[in-house]
Nucleic acid binder design. Structure first.
Lengths: 210, 210
DNA sequence: TCCTGTAAGTGAATACCATTAACTTAATGA
DNA sequence: TCATTAAGTTAATGGTATTCACTTACAGGA
């Protein structure tokens, strides 16, 4: 069997991303081989190379897909939120850290691992101008939230870009440390400590109210 | 040549950590093979396995060594600092992020990569009770600094453990995002943005002064 | 309808690594 | 002196990403 007929073709490109996502999320990227993915898709490993130049590229595709899903999820959640800017910021932060700790392998792939980042750099170096990092939009969401807070009298006088990046740093940092068990995790569960970091940050924000 | 005589022996264990550290710091862990390290040391790759059960263990040794150097560095810097607790916290944060951005590959190895963390877990799982994470001491340093700030009237009413973890989250998060170019890095240099995150955090702390 | 060039796979190499095996010689100590 | 152990070596082994050479299906024109 060398080439399947039209009626028994499978959409390798799409299915590869789906399968890789599932396997990566289950086991982490290092524990998944191209053969594993191919087996899941229903083809041999070399077939994947017709659609992705290497494993890193497949990693990046899963990474991008993860962001699209995250944003869809956030957009849906945002619509049901109230209109209190402070509370929105707080719930957004808590949602972020919960998402991360509930999907640690996906979070690693999207925010921590070097592979997708390197691949993106390679694309840019190759003159691929449209190689945009879909992850950058996280920051814009956050900035909107910060601006709303400032309109409500919080964080007066702070540069909103700097504030947004700082807030993102807290949530990302807390999650990253938790995933490596860096912190006072001997006794308490990671979820609690990470949530507490968000609450601590919000307590500081609260004291900036005029 | 099968085994060197006593007078032409080399201290493989020590030199392996040194060489590995240098190579890892130069190229990043993935780009360094056991052969590269052995070549640097002056032996063959399998000889390394007499002293380290696998590459991960060697990684962990370099990781631990990095922390020892970081703490020595911090202790030296601390001695020259003034007695203003707020300023100490600020300068400590700035020193941390500068260290990270000046030694990105070392920082990756110490705080971001999964390898050393997994190795530590393996040790613990094997009942190795003294497998203590030397990285945990970072947090204690920070807590001391936070407590001093509270004595000076800042951060009143906040749990010092939570505050310390939150502060660490900011600096680690900012550095981690910067290393993946996540943030408004199109125009501005990473150093500036990361430092700005520290300053933003400190601005929030300043407003808690009674 | 037949022919030809291209597309989409396949199985068999290749190359690189971490790690293990089998073996050789130096040191040690009775 | 000699047996045992220690410290290396070279030569496998096994796994994995990636490339190669080849086969067959399809699409489009003669």
């Amino acid at each position: 069997m060398v080439r399947p007929r039209k009626d028994e073709r499978i959409d390798i490109k799409t299915r590869a991303v789906e399968s890789a996502a599932r396997l990566f999320v289950e086991r982490g990227t290092d524990a998944v081989t191209m053969q594993d993915i191919a087996a899941e898709v229903g083809c041999r490993a070399p077939a994947l190379y017709r659609y992705f130049p290497n494993k890193e590229a497949l990693l990046l595709a899963v990474h991008d897909d993860g962001f699209r899903r995250l944003y869809a999820h956030k957009a849906a959640a945002g619509r049901t939120a109230g209109d209190d800017a402070y509370e929105r910021l707080r719930l957004g932060g808590l949602a972020y850290v919960r998402f991360a700790l509930e999907n640690p392998n996906l979070y690693e792939l999207m925010f921590i691992e070097r592979g997708p980042f390197l691949r993106l750099n390679a694309l840019r170096a190759a003159g691929n101008a449209e190689a945009e990092d879909i992850g950058q939009r996280s920051l814009e969401f956050l900035k909107t939230s910060i601006l709303a807070c400032q309109k409500s009298g919080y964080l007066e006088g702070l540069d909103p870009d700097a504030a947004a990046f700082t807030f993102w740093s807290v949530v990302h940092g807390a999650v990253s440390l938790a995933l490596r068990r860096r912190g006072p995790f001997h006794a308490v569960e990671p979820e609690r400590i990470v949530a507490q970091a968000v609450e601590t940050m919000m307590a500081l924000v609260a004291r900036t109210s005029r």
